[in-house]
Simulated scan of single mutants.
Amino acid sequence: MSVTDTTSSLSLNDILANSSIKTNTTTGGLAAATGAATGSQSLGKDAFLKLLVTQLKNQDPLSPQDNGAFVAQLAQFSSLEGITSLNTTVSSMASNFSSSQALQASSLVGHSVIAQTNIAQISDPTKGLTGSVTVPSSIADGTVTITDASGKVVRTLDLGSQPAGSASFKWDGNDSSGAVVPAGTYTFNASAPIGGTATALATYLPATVNSVTLSQTGGELTLNLAGLGPVGLSKVQTIGM
């Protein structure tokens, strides 16, 4: 007795029609089948496995699907699921990092920091001020010129001979005549002759943190310093009490 195969390869619509997943053929297709299985228009793990099992049940027994094709489908879905889980984990880590950053930022408020700036807010001149300058190469002489808010020079400090590196200076809060200056904002401009040319030097001065701004795009913290305004955390040299 000969056996005649009267079946043909089933299409995806045939598979879906014969499966337990009911769908409207007028709006049919994979999206509708997936929606019926998962309650949404995204293909989830359960819906994928149901479609795979249905495909196995409805394959032509005399011409079954290639095993390698099923393995490839499972591998692709496994990779996709792994990437989805990884995205979820990374998002969770980013959220935790933001929370930790906010906690650290709140602890900086009210503290004194040493930041790269040439402006300082002096509330009590009798306490003086200690700052530093960055010397790119050894110098025989250098100066720090202090001016008030009106641009008037109130004092010039001598740095003297300095090796390359960081050179500190101290101002007692007095002007050139020895009188205590009034409270206010002062500018410190450091310079030294390097290679026969007067060169400006970066200055680091103390300031108090009034508030902290968190970046919404993953950038660095911004410290809002008294009398100075916003300064990036990367420009802060020292954080004190």
Rank of each mutant, 00 (worst) to 15 (best):
I194M: 15
I122A: 04
V133E: 02
F77T: 00
L49S: 02
V133L: 02
S107D: 11
D172L: 08
S112F: 07
G227Y: 05
T7A: 06
T25R: 10
D5Q: 07
Q237G: 13
L214C: 08
A17C: 05
G39Q: 14
V154T: 13
L74H: 00
F77L: 00
T117F: 01
P136N: 13
G229T: 07
Q65R: 12
S19R: 08
R155C: 07
D60Y: 03
A47C: 08
S123G: 07
S123D: 10
S63I: 08
S177D: 15
T197G: 04
T197P: 05
T145C: 10
S42Y: 13
Q162T: 05
F70I: 04
K50T: 12
S2Q: 14
S42R: 10
T203F: 01
L56I: 04
S234N: 11
T217E: 06
T126D: 10
V180Y: 04
T126G: 15
S20M: 14
A105M: 03
V109I: 09
S132P: 02
D66F: 07
G227P: 11
V181M: 13
L228F: 03
L52P: 00
D46C: 05
L74R: 03
G110W: 05
S79H: 03
L221H: 03
T199G: 07
D46E: 12
Y186G: 09
V53K: 05
G82T: 08
G184D: 13
Q116H: 07
T4V: 10
S106V: 06
S150N: 15
A167T: 02
L52A: 02
Q116K: 08
S2L: 08
A69G: 03
S138H: 12
F48P: 00
A36F: 10
S42K: 11
L225A: 06
T88A: 14
M1D: 10
Q101P: 00
E220L: 02
S63N: 13
T4P: 06
A72H: 02
A105G: 11
F97E: 09
G131W: 00
S9I: 11
Y186S: 12
P64Q: 11
S95I: 14
V71P: 00
L205I: 05
S85G: 14
K22R: 08
K57D: 06
A167V: 04
M93I: 13
T54W: 10
G39F: 11
T27Y: 15
N13C: 06
Q101N: 08
I21D: 07
P193H: 10
V212G: 04
S78V: 01
G160M: 07
V144W: 04
G68N: 10
A198F: 10
L12D: 05
D14I: 07
T54P: 04
S8N: 09
V181Q: 11
V209C: 03
Q216K: 06
I239A: 11
